[in-house]
């Protein structure tokens, strides 16, 4: 298998990125019934990624093998209003196709992004579904720890 390389995403990657984004969200859906996919996810996803690629305050990087995009990461640069450190690089999407997993590519993808983010962010955070044990393991192994939790319930409680 050829080596995986990393670069910033361009608008030409959009079709492929939408596919990978949907795969990632579908995986989340497997973990938690409160993460049911919307029917218009393809449309919404495209807009979301397009804006991120164009935005100064977002970073989208792709992993490439054999000239094909096989994974991606999206992060947002944010200001933390009440706390130090003040600048945050918030990773919100990270996905690699199955064949490229368990080979260290995920870590490399993350390190590549962090390297860019660190110019503007003093702290790196990652957001993922609590029940996604794969993500939990991945970030924990890289010395991340939980600092804020999002708890959810539906407004009407089903008995």
């Amino acid at each position: 298998m050829t080596a995986v390389t990393f670069r910033k995403a361009t608008l030409n990657d959009l079709d492929r990125l939408v596919d990978l984004l949907i795969r990632q969200k579908r995986l989340n859906e497997e973990f938690d019934p409160l993460l049911r996919l919307r029917e218009d996810i393809a449309e919404i996803g495209r807009k979301y990624l397009e804006e991120a690629i164009k935005s100064e305050n977002s970073l989208v990087v792709v992993a490439e093998a054999d000239g094909r995009v096989v994974g991606f990461l999206k992060a947002d640069i944010k200001e933390r209003l009440f706390y130090y450190p003040k600048t945050e690089g918030n990773i919100v999407e990270l996905y690699l196709l199955p064949e490229y997993r368990r080979k260290g590519n995920g870590v490399k993808l993350l390190e590549y992004a962090v390297n860019i983010l660190k110019e503007r962010a003093e702290i790196i955070t990652a957001e993922f579904p609590s029940l996604n044990e794969i993500a939990t393991r991945f970030y924990t192994n890289l010395n991340f720890r939980a600092i804020i939790s999002t708890y959810a319930r539906e407004t009407i409680i089903k008995k």
């Binding site: 579908r26 995986l27 497997e30 199955p98």
Partner: peptide, 20 residues
């Protein structure tokens, strides 16, 4: 390896996933 139910297989049927 790139069928769109691969992640589902990974969680529910890792044996089939490995074969894929």
């Amino acid at each position: 390896a790139e069928r769109d139910d691969m992640d589902e297989l990974m969680l529910k049927n890792p044996w089939k996933y490995e074969l894929a």
